[in-house]
């Protein structure tokens, strides 16, 4: 029995990486966007659109990596559209975000109909567990390169936000549009760039879903991960490195149900599957109090003003 529990733990850790990777990309994208002072709820649509694009390009070209790149570009286009719409006066980023979410998912379903059946080439995984004889550990250490890339992106993004002129400008735009304008910074352009780059990351997150895990293209693929990213970013206090840990946490939570099932515990399977959503709800309830504002939140975000 003891080995069984170890198995669960290993499976949860492996699942944390496997399921957490798309969370990582989406939350990094959202983090960057929010640092510049806007919220992009449309990332849910971006994720689905990225998944569809990645799958379709991979199928047609035979190269899953080209699929990943195109998914990023599709996400970038959606992000640019969102931020361009938001740069008009009196346009609310939340409302545009909801519209973009519906637009992105709708467009992906429309264009993605022919890709539900055929099987596209899959992203390869790196076998870090080759040294081990334990099959569970071997499975858990099958890691996709995108996860490693995600770690690098998190580190680089965190470094850039504090140590480069570009990062400082993004933060000023997110903290105070007035101060940014007084410094002669083009606030709208900075936000458009940040949201587009955020969309790029989210699009890559989407391609991971369709090209690696769960590795198919269907309409229920993202199941709200793009929206949960908003809560993740709040929980991560707008720090890219914290986004990494939080994504792993959420991924682990999502892996709990399947892992328990693998050792024969099937009771409450659906409850376990709901854990990420429950955690999201809990984060929103705990952090959103009428009497307090959030520490570390960029000042320009409409939800904190």
């Amino acid at each position: 029995m003891e080995a069984g529990w170890w198995g669960v733990l290993i499976a949860v850790l492996g699942g944390a990486i496997r399921i957490g990777t798309p969370f990582l990309f989406v939350s990094l994208g959202e983090c960057l966007t929010e640092k510049s002072g806007r919220i992009n709820l449309g990332l849910e649509g971006t994720l689905v659109m990225g998944a569809m694009t990645g799958y379709a390009v991979s199928l047609h070209s035979g190269s899953p990596w080209l699929g990943v790149l195109c998914a990023g570009l599709a996400g970038m286009a959606l992000g640019a559209l969102h931020s361009w719409l938001c740069s008009f006066q009196r346009v609310n980023d939340i409302a545009v975000g909801i519209a973009m979410m519906l637009f992105g998912t709708g467009l992906a379903f429309f264009l993605g109909k022919p890709y539900i059946q055929p099987s596209a080439p899959r992203l390869p995984s790196i076998d870090l567990g080759a040294w081990s004889d334990v099959p569970q550990l071997k499975a858990a250490l099958q890691i996709n390169a995108l996860f490693l890339i995600g770690i690098v992106v998190a580190i680089v993004l965190g470094w850039m936000l504090t140590n480069t002129a570009w990062g400082l400008k993004v933060r000023v735009a997110g903290e105070s549009a007035d101060a940014a304008r007084a410094l002669g910074l083009p606030v709208d352009r900075i936000r458009i760039m940040s949201t587009a780059q955020g969309g790029f990351l989210a699009g890559i997150g989407g391609s991971y879903l369709s090209l690696y895990y769960p590795f198919n293209w269907s309409e229920g693929l993202s199941s709200g991960q793009g929206l949960m990213a908003v809560a993740l970013v709040i929980f991560a206090r707008w720090q890219p490195m914290a986004c990494l840990w939080v994504s792993l946490l959420w991924g682990g939570a999502a892996a709990l149900g399947p892992s328990l099932q693998s050792v024969g515990i099937t009771g409450g399977y659906y409850i376990f599957n709901a854990i990420p959503y429950i955690m999201t709800l809990a984060v929103m309830i705990i952090t959103c109090s009428p009497r307090r504002t959030l520490v570390g939140a960029p000042h320009e975000l409409t939800v904190t003003r």
Binding site: N163, T164, A165, L168, R171, V172, S176
Partner: peptide, 26 residues
């Protein structure tokens, strides 16, 4: 005040410079 409360004094003074290096040597 036109300062940014969430940033340090150093960052606030640096950002107001006309030309910032691409990579900032803090």
């Amino acid at each position: 005040f036109t300062l940014i409360p969430n940033m340090t004094v150093l960052e606030n003074l640096a950002i107001s410079k006309a030309k910032l290096n691409l990579i900032i040597n803090w």
